[in-house]
Amino acid sequence: MLAAVALLASCGLPRSGPNKNEIFAGSVLREGDAFVLIVDDRVNRIASVSPALGFSATFNNAGVLGSDTIQPGDILGLTVWENVDDGLLVPTGQPATVLNEVQVDGSGFIFVPYAGRIRAAGNTPEGLRQIITSKLEDQTPAPQVQVRRLAGDGSTVSVSGGVGAQGVYPIERPTRTLSSMLAQAGGVVIPPEIAQVTVVRGNTTGTIWYEDLYDNPQGDIALRAGDRIMVKEDSRTFTALGATGAQNRIPFETKSISAIEALATVGGLLSAVADPTGVFVFRNEPAEIANQLLDRTDLIGTQRVVYILDLTRPNGMFMARDFAVRDGDTIYVTEAPFVQFNKVVAAATGSLNAATAATDIAGN
């Protein structure tokens, strides 16, 4: 019986993955190239740092556009009154002349007869009115000019992704900031907890959590003509393996998730087989974090780190609750030692019973 147990133990019995000793063998102190660390308060403070989303100074320092600022592509309406019978622009017998649909060209200029080529972009209608009046009054007495900003494609943004109504929208008085423009586009239709908002402005890109637009008003940036806004669902995932309720690749359901929450998401530990002293998190850490964890300065490049969560230790559950899972992490729970022993005994017993039955048949 003992010989059979020893033989079976040396063979590869079915199991969910490596045991603790095999994982420890992968440490840099033994045969491998991974750093194995027990999670405590210090490790939690360093390892739980995750990349933050937010906008750069290029976005944050941009002031809100004036609601009536003229942009290239805008269409203007001009009306000119002249206090003479035979005016420059006003037809005989008419009180005024109307110039409809005067488009601001790509360089920001318009052409007005007798006033010439005038820069309109960057001016308000009132400012442009004063410029046109000044140029005409040298040729006709006391001209009266009215400038109206009618429409145009110069001050528009595109909104796409997980919103109620994708499309191109003008920047108007109520929609000069990111949150108000998203509301104009029908709001976010994916779960707000995992919604990310990306803004592309020229060669600069910034991303923020949708909820942070309201938790942090600084993130509600002023929009600029040509901005591209995209709302998408968080794509981060972690993988759960071993003695857990489910072995799968799991998407994040909130902005942050702890090790305890991650285990709960997959059904927790299997009480019949799991070893609560052997909860491991496998992660590739950047050199900056790895050097802090190990109190070193010589590590270069991404480092393999294995974090150990022992739920049976004093405050072990608190450590796991405070340990933040990151994108790409693998959470692995080992089987309890007696589970493998039971498998060996069960296999040995079954083998001996089969051998006895075969002997009885042969004897008969």
Rank of each mutant, 00 (worst) to 15 (best):
R173G: 12
T277V: 14
L88K: 05
A120F: 15
L29E: 12
E335R: 02
A142P: 03
I171P: 03
E101W: 15
L150Y: 10
G54T: 00
N216H: 10
Y210I: 07
A246D: 05
V197T: 00
D310K: 10
G17L: 14
A259S: 03
A348P: 05
I208T: 11
V199A: 09
E335W: 12
E288I: 08
I194H: 03
Q146K: 07
L53N: 06
T349I: 09
T330W: 15
F323Q: 01
G152Y: 05
R249Y: 13
Q247A: 13
D295F: 09
A47L: 02
L89Y: 08
A357V: 06
D322G: 10
V200Q: 09
F35L: 01
A222Q: 02
G186H: 06
A243W: 11
N342M: 13
V344H: 07
F24L: 15
A165T: 15
G167E: 01
I229C: 04
S180A: 15
I308M: 14
A264K: 06
V49G: 13
L309Y: 03
E137G: 12
T302D: 08
T97F: 15
V80Q: 06
A272L: 12
L311E: 01
R45E: 10
Q166F: 08
T330A: 10
T140Y: 05
V36D: 01
Q103T: 08
D220H: 05
P91M: 04
D33F: 15
S351N: 06
L88A: 03
I118C: 10
R30H: 08
A274Y: 07
V199S: 04
R117P: 05
A243I: 13
A336F: 14
V306Q: 02
A262I: 08
Q303C: 02
R283D: 02
R148W: 13
S351K: 07
P95N: 01
T156K: 09
F24T: 03
G206L: 06
A240M: 08
A336H: 13
F338R: 08
S179P: 07
Q71N: 10
P170S: 01
A142N: 08
I75A: 12
I23Y: 06
A362R: 04
A142R: 04
T124E: 06
V325Y: 03
I171T: 00
D234G: 10
F238G: 03
R224W: 10
R30W: 12
G278N: 04
T297K: 03
L88N: 02
T133D: 09
S160C: 06
D215M: 12
A357F: 14
G12K: 12
F109Q: 04
Q144Y: 09
T58L: 14
A358S: 09
